[in-house]
Amino acid sequence: MITATTPKPLLTLSGVCVFYGNFRAIDQIDIAVGAGEIVSIIGANGAGKTTLLKAIIGQADRVEGRICFAGAEILGSTTAAIVRSGIMLVPEGRRLFPSLTVEENLQLGWEVGRRGQIGFDDVFRLFPVLREQRRQRAGWLSGGQQQMVALGRALLANPRLLLCDEISLGLAPQVVAELYALIPAIKARGIGILIVEQDLERSLSVADRFYCLLEGRVSLAGRPAEVTHETVIRHYFGL
């Protein structure tokens, strides 16, 4: 029975394991993200955060368990099909195509995604600087501007669920603050957001709920307001 107070989750992972060879990088994880919900995945280096995102997007070698998105099983689908169904990744390190122009990078997001309301104008309204730079090669932009292109590229795919991998990495604090200030606007469009972030404070400040990973398992889950800082730290390092 689905009740009105707990909306049907957009994405559910049940009993998911991810392997590298014989090494179990993710071990029996259960995670859910609802539409218009911001969920944060926190955890130390090597806890399996990026691996988790790769498993969702269909880029991990061996995955077991169930991954359901919008009521359909997506485990085993190609990345292209998953992206078309409405999940888009903002990869760690931005991963733009440096020799392509800003506009071409954005256009690729539009082409791989599903049809929807978000268009170039919306992206340029969010990031006005990109309109000026749209003929510039992406490789020549500053780190912050590159991250804007990566976010814009993902938004143009009109995702229902956005996966953000370490978007603050290597950026000046002020730029990070600006980027995070835009997250509520994205959420307001009903897009679910799964954030992976090293920066604990930043990540918890925007999240509706969070999961803490430790050595491939969920060591703590809840709402940021409901747990103390000390509890989080304890589960973060497994003390």
Partner: peptide, 20 residues
Amino acid sequence: GAKIRAVSDDVAAADLIGLS
């Protein structure tokens, strides 16, 4: 053409965003 140049730039990144 843009897709061809994109995979030429970074094939792993292309796969990550669903360009086959």
